[in-house]
Nucleic acid binder design. Structure first.
Lengths: 223, 223
DNA sequence: CTTCGATATAATGTCGACAAAAAAGATAGA
DNA sequence: TCTATCTTTTTTGTCGACATTATATCGAAG
């Protein structure tokens, strides 16, 4: 795709590396080094960094350059609390507003997660998990709310990728998903909201408790 | 303030002009024109525009430049629905967590609004209104949530500035504020949340109904 | 040995120019 | 007259160099 601009491609590459964990929180992003590495001038690098700053994956301090966003435990807790509420809202609106196609879509994705667990395919489960949350965002019929929730989730995804989750947690996660999906299919807004809030809160606890054991192993991303 | 960087000052200037209404939604921001106007090269202009894009006040389409963010009615409704929920959350957490100093601060600001109304000083009321909402954000004890709510509010502020509000609405607004503040002072999380959600929803209705009558008159910003 | 300050180094901020792409305008054909 | 295509013009994207500021290094004083 030569249609896209140079700085965009660079931004995408860097974004993936941050999400993948190649670039860790706190790592400084030197303009000249990046320019050398991508064999371009500093201009598209600057644009790419500003572009990335939009996603909050990196931060800029004037005259001090860019660095991969560093999040302390307190902020992490706050972000998860916010995410819990935001996803709760999405789930509520989803339960009240989703159309038949969207409900069926959600039901199918949930089944996909069930199958993944039966086959002990954690990669497939991670994908089903991501898809389920996404489907609920999409079905809340409020793009602004969806974008906000997605934004917070993306900011946290770099931590999801850093930690390993037990199969035990995955099974529990699927169970929580079941309750959420049931509420949604039953048009139970309050129930869906509560179930989702609890689900995200448990995920947060799980991830925050893992902080410190920074193994570089691949994560399933089960929440 | 020569301490600050050139692009930052330009970003601030443009930001004010957008918020003030000098630059209207849809207006294109030509790099060269801005460079000529500020008597600088295009580099700091580009940086300033990217900086502004961070706040969503302006939007970028690759190879098509920047333009003041244009928000259609549907999006506006979604944003207000999201803001209503977000401020409701802030109010709830504020009622449950605010310390004595913060509660006293909120009480005083509310009184300031009351005084402003007595003296028919709409400018003062607008300021008190802004301060009250800000104080509630600050006292929710979750910086992430505060930032998210503030972000949405800022995105909407350009519309607040576009429309004129009746003194009748201002009085009603203050009445709604009173209920919110009472709930907060009584540690009533549910009450504060509900009152705030209703308050923001009424504001939204008021503003959305004003769309179309684009008078350039100064607004009180009463919500 | 530690700490403060001056110098040296390296990074970001800014500049003007050229390249590439999109938008505007002109021309030819129907 | 309208449309489609080509040309011109404008605008964004990229480049390399210089200016300015922050950081690191080194030396001197306490």
């Amino acid at each position: 795709m030569t249609n896209t601009t140079l700085s965009q491609r660079i931004a995408n590459t860097l974004s993936e590396e941050i999400l993948k964990g190649d670039l860790k929180p706190g790592d400084r992003l030197d303009e000249q080094s990046l320019a050398d590495r991508f064999q371009v001038s500093r201009s598209p690098i600057r644009d790419a960094l500003r572009e990335l700053a939009l996603t909050r994956l990196i931060e800029q301090r004037p005259r001090r350059g860019f660095a991969v966003a560093q999040i302390e435990t307190t902020t992490l807790r706050n972000l998860y609390e916010a995410l819990s509420e935001l996803e709760g809202l999405c789930a509520r609106y989803c339960a009240l507003r989703a159309d038949t196609v969207q409900r069926e879509h959600i039901r199918l994705i949930h089944t996909r997660g069930q199958d993944a667990i039966k086959q002990h395919d954690m990669t497939a489960y991670a994908e089903a998990n991501r898809a389920l949350h996404q489907a609920i965002y999409d079905a809340c019929h409020n793009d602004a709310l969806r974008d906000i929730a997605l934004d917070v989730r993306n900011r946290l995804s770099m931590f999801h990728a850093q930690f390993l989750f037990s199969e035990e947690r995955v099974v529990q996660s699927q169970d929580e998903h079941r309750e959420i999906v049931e509420c949604i299919l039953n048009n139970d807004g309050d129930g869906a909201s509560e179930a989702m809030k609890k689900h995200v809160a448990k995920t947060a606890l799980n991830i925050i408790s893992h902080i410190g054991s920074k193994t570089g192993e691949p994560a399933t991303g089960a929440d």
